[in-house]
Design a protein around this nucleic acid. Structure first.
Length: 569
RNA sequence: UGGGGGAUCGUCCAGCGGUAGGACAUCGGACUCUGACUCCGAGAACCUAGGUUCGAAUCCUAGUCCCCCAGCCA
């Protein structure tokens, strides 16, 4: 059986390169052609303060992809400069998920914290050059001094401290002589700069916190702009790819490069982040859903987290395909879920074995089938792939069919089972309904049919044209299962950016559980993580957390395309 | 009112002065022992106004609309 959620590492590298190059790949190609670089080096720099989501998947595919296509290198660098928010558990999860997505960083797993000493040296150098100073304003004062979007800021009274004073103060900051927040180190740039990032940005703050990697070695930690630029340069990054919101940080990035002695001069290029309709990707909001237990955790199959999509049964190749199809531009966008689902179906259609399962069972009794008789019917595991083999389906007098596949008062276009009507049982016989059994409420509890013994699949009688074919499971020999039917998490395309709180748009039907489903007998020992197509229903994955032999739990990955649903409305 | 970005079918992406094209979605049709898959077909877009040019989505000018920035977060 094929486990579609597992993938050999670096399969990603063999994905076909896009036929038309996006603007970043054009820049890279130009740089190579012009001889500005001989080797391309990129990096994916997540902060370990949460799980990766589909937006990160884009960045991962871009950074690793660009490097691989150019025969270069890509670093996986954990940007761990804020010990208050970060956690080793997130580091582990990130590593696991990047690998699952299909990428390999060889020995290039790094951390911003690996460079704390060098970053500190850079700070000292800046102080020595009179380009950084220790400030002692409170956060409130600093905000006030910063000015506004339209008004210039004012210089801090501490801005004129001498190099010697600053050096001494910074040394004592580092030595733990001060309380958190008492001082900061700031770059001395321009308090009147129209770009607020240039109004003497903070380089270091005091934080008496245990860092998950460096422990208590430091009580001062560098901020993003400073640490990130230096890390990039130290790793010899040629193209530092990031999202649009960092666009106006680029002048600061370049200021650091121009004012520090660094081994490389990376170029920052920004692209728009991947937004998906009917979901959210803000880490803060994802964390909120988890905190409030509105979802089951970071790997809840409804979440657009990589862990969630993996548990949902999305194959990594489909995710990569999806990311590739959404392109790389600077235009803000919101991609439709249907594109993702199409990629998932396209991949799974080729790879997933077929099986039969009845989610909402209705009993069928074949009144002319001898009681006690059973037989085995051969069924192909894939309609287009004989290499996947076939299996034997137990068949008998009593069967389960899908309740939706029977309709007492059916419209003309309904070509499944109806009173007096005929339907073909997949891989089995043609049956005709002649009677119904109802309970006190008038609900159909049993459908009585006759089967035509000449019409078993493979027999000449089976040639007869019957409009409908339905799936079924032997009532005597079936496997009980819980099947979780997932739908979009939110009921509106843009849950964020609305007037109301995003949580008010949660889709109450994002999870429906069918606890009395029946699976065909061959599914008795499916290992977790395996994706199958339940014929006529969709793709389903054996849940990697709750599924075990004897207690089958399947998640619906995605439905099959259903043109009947459209007719029906 | 400051600075930085962005506007092409419903959605996403191409276009790089020479017939606006692809994918997803939608709507028809063919095929079908999965109302799946596959195949065939259709409709569908250049933010606005000027200008340059034989010719403009592309170049110029002026607008309009949208996004980001005032953390000791990243």
């Amino acid at each position: 059986m094929n486990d579609a959620t597992r993938d050999p590492a670096n399969e990603a590298a063999s994905d076909a390169a896009p036929e038309s190059r996006d603007f970043i790949r054009q820049i890279v190609a130009d740089d190579l052609a012009a001889g500005r670089h001989s080797v391309i080096v990129t990096r994916f720099p997540p902060e370990p303060n949460g799980y990766l989501h589909v937006g990160h998947a884009k960045s991962i595919c871009l950074n690793f992809g660009v490097a691989a296509e150019a025969g270069g290198r890509c670093f996986l660098r954990l940007d761990d400069t804020n010990p208050l928010k970060e956690d080793q558990a997130f580091v582990d999860a990130i590593i696991d998920q990047v690998r699952w997505l299909g990428f390999d960083w060889a020995d290039r797993l790094t951390h911003a914290s690996d460079y704390f000493a060098q970053i500190h040296d850079c700070a000292v150098a800046l102080i020595g050059a009179g380009k950084a100073y220790v400030d002692s304003l409170t956060p409130e004062q600093m905000r006030e001094y910063r000015g506004t979007l339209t008004a210039p800021g004012r210089e801090s009274p501490h801005r004129s401290r001498t190099v010697a004073e600053n050096l001494e103060l910074f040394t004592r900051m580092r030595a733990g002589a001060f309380a958190d927040g008492e001082h900061v180190l700031r770059a001395k740039i321009d308090m009147a700069a129209p770009n607020i990032n240039l109004r003497d940005p903070v380089l270091y703050r005091i934080r008496r916190a245990t860092h998950q990697r460096t422990g208590a070695a430091w009580c001062i930690y560098p901020l993003y702009d400073f640490a990130h630029t230096i890390s990039d340069a130290l790793e010899g990054i040629t193209h530092s790819l990031c999202t649009l919101e960092f666009e106006d940080h680029r002048p600061l990035y370049e200021w650091f490069l121009a004012n520090l002695q660094l081994p490389a001069r990376p170029r920052q290029i920004e692209f728009s982040r991947l937004n998906l309709a009917f979901t959210i990707t803000s880490k803060r909001r994802l964390a909120e859903l988890i905190e409030l237990q509105l979802v089951a955790g970071w790997d809840d199959p409804r979440l657009p987290t990589i862990a969630g999509m993996r548990r949902r049964g999305y194959p990594p190749a489909a995710l990569r395909d999806f990311v590739g199809r959404t392109g790389v531009t600077k235009k803000e966008h919101r991609v439709q879920m249907s594109l993702l689902e199409n990629c998932v179906r396209e991949d799974l259609n080729v790879r997933a074995s077929r099986a039969m399962a009845v989610l909402n069972p209705l009993k069928v009794v074949l009144t002319n089938y001898p009681a006690g008789q059973t037989e085995l019917l051969a069924a192909a595991n894939h309609p287009d792939r004989p290499d996947l083999g076939e299996r034997q389906l137990p068949f008998g007098r009593e069967l389960w069919i899908e309740r939706d596949d029977f309709m007492e008062d059916a419209p003309q276009k309904f070509f499944r089972l109806r009173p007096g009507g005929e339907v073909r049982l997949r891989y089995g016989y043609i049956i005709r309904c002649h009677d119904l059994v109802k309970d006190a409420d008038g609900r159909v509890t049993e459908v009585h049919c006759t089967y035509d013994p000449e019409t078993r699949s493979g027999m000449s009688g089976a040639e007869r044209k019957v409009k409908g074919t339905i799936h079924w499971v032997s009532a005597a020999r079936a496997v009980r299962a819980e099947v979780r039917l997932y739908d979009r998490l939110f009921s509106v395309a843009r849950p964020d950016g609305q007037d109301a709180d995003f949580k008010t748009f949660l889709n109450p039907e994002s999870l429906r559980i069918e606890s009395k489903a029946w699976l065909e007998l061959s599914l008795l020992e499916v290992p977790p993580g395996v994706v199958l197509q339940f014929e006529r229903l969709g793709y389903f994955v054996a849940d990697r957390v709750d599924h075990r032999p004897g207690q089958a739990v399947f998640n619906r990955v995605v439905t099959l395309r259903d043109s009947w649903a459209k007719v029906e409305g």
